[in-house]
Write a protein that binds this DNA or RNA. Structure first.
Lengths: 248, 248
DNA sequence: TCGCATTTGTGCGTATTTGCGTGCGTGGGA
DNA sequence: TCCCACGCACGCAAATACGCACAAATGCGA
């Protein structure tokens, strides 16, 4: 049996019954549990099913423990982002104070963060904060006005709070990445929070898929040299050669 | 059976009947009460159901209660809370700056808030903030450390932020209400936020069902005279007579 | 046939889940 | 007043599931 066929078989089994266990699949398809697990991982990444502890369920049913799938589904650069986040998450060190910017990429990053000794995470997004707390992380939220669209906190309170902190490292998303125009965002207020938070961070990382290179959004929040970029996929040659660009 | 399926089964059982006990669930799903309890905890944290003493109820039953014409038997406080929240919500005036404390009663209050001109709501709960934003309210969140259990923000940042504000009116929940011991809460840090926020508010309202009268929690956050209490149900005569108690 | 990449199975250490026992507090009856 | 049933949190131990590394098997092109 072809591996591809096996994947399809798994999907249809899941669709039919709603959920299956790993041993069930292994038995039915005549392979070991390890292989099934690897298959489930593949299918989960492709968002064809949802992998859960013990087996897999259809996406519709999966919203109990994993409610990220909705946002993730709309995402084309999925595999790349996955790798980017895994790489970025490995940069967090024990006993550090870490800033996490709002945005969909950083939200995904949270799922990859390891459980280390004595790490505190600070974020400007209530959504990110909830995810962090759910994962058992020590979490601090900036104050400020809540922007309904992005669930990010902005305004003088957010700025004043972040101004008192000094982070060991931090992760930001960016709508535009260009050598001349630097890192850019669509909103003035959010850009301000990004700018100030970066200013108080020792090791700065922008995590982004390759599609953002060469793009320019209305408001600049940092120079191109101000952060190390962790990216993946078809990075333009011009950027790939730069020494603050890490392609995974 | 997958753990994930079990969680889904619990949710649908709760949805169907409105409420269900732990032994019922354990019997129906073939697991022990311990496991059920852990599941309920998970689901409660995910806000899929509301965990109550002895079992679980649907969120509608516990919070919204818009259209529960059927099965109104259980939860006596439910109807009371509805009336309390409706009365409290009517106290918000246009062009005001309003504080909303964390807690389940104030969460319900949010559903009743009218859409008025130029009102800004400030809260120490990320959950409340999300609901407010969802309803289209201008929303500000205090900063600070996020307590996973209550989704409330505490610590010096929360206190520093609230210290800069002055509210026209505010609404608090209270775990204990007693003439001598005043208003009390179970947690020191949360009590601090309550105390400071009250200090900066002109018109202070505590909203609570009658069961809290005479109860005393570990930490006091205000004197009995410091707020007007909006309540309903079987209020002890001693309290009913007080002029800062409004029974609806 | 050889070399190389990919896939699959196996072993092992770690995490998670689950059931069970214990102790605590509460709220009735006897 | 004592006692018991009940619900619940906590900790422990067994079973299970998991991820990872490495080896074996397989597939494929030269």
């Amino acid at each position: 049996m072809l591996a591809e066929d096996r994947l399809n078989a798994i999907v249809s089994m899941v669709q039919q019954t709603g959920s299956v266990t790993v041993p069930e699949l292994a038995e039915a398809l005549g392979v070991t549990a390890s292989t099934i697990r690897r298959d489930l991982q593949t299918l989960d990444r492709a968002h064809r099913i949802a992998k859960v502890h013990g087996g897999a369920t259809s996406l519709e049913r999966a919203h109990v423990t994993r409610d990220l799938t909705l946002n993730e589904r709309s995402d084309l650069h999925n595999d790349d982002k996955e790798r980017i986040c895994a790489r970025a998450a490995a940069l967090v060190e024990p006993e550090s104070f870490v800033y996490i910017d709002s945005g969909s990429t950083t939200l995904r990053l949270i799922e990859h963060l390891p459980h280390l000794e004595d790490v505190t995470y600070v974020t400007d997004s209530v959504l990110h904060a909830q995810r962090l707390a759910l994962r058992g992380m020590r979490t601090v939220v900036l104050g400020g006005e809540l922007k309904p669209e992005t669930e990010a906190l902005v305004g003088p309170d957010a700025l004043a709070t972040v101004d008192r902190y000094n982070f060991n490292c931090g992760f930001w998303g960016s709508n535009g990445i260009a050598a001349e125009q630097g890192f850019t965002a669509p909103d003035i207020e959010e850009a301000q929070v990004k700018r100030i938070s970066m200013r108080h961070t020792a090791k700065r990382f922008v995590i982004s898929d390759a599609s953002k290179f060469g793009m320019v959004a209305p408001v600049k929040f940092a120079d191109f040299r101000d952060a190390t970029i962790i990216t993946a996929g078809e990075v333009p040659a011009k950027y790939r050669a730069m020494d603050n660009v890490i392609t995974v």
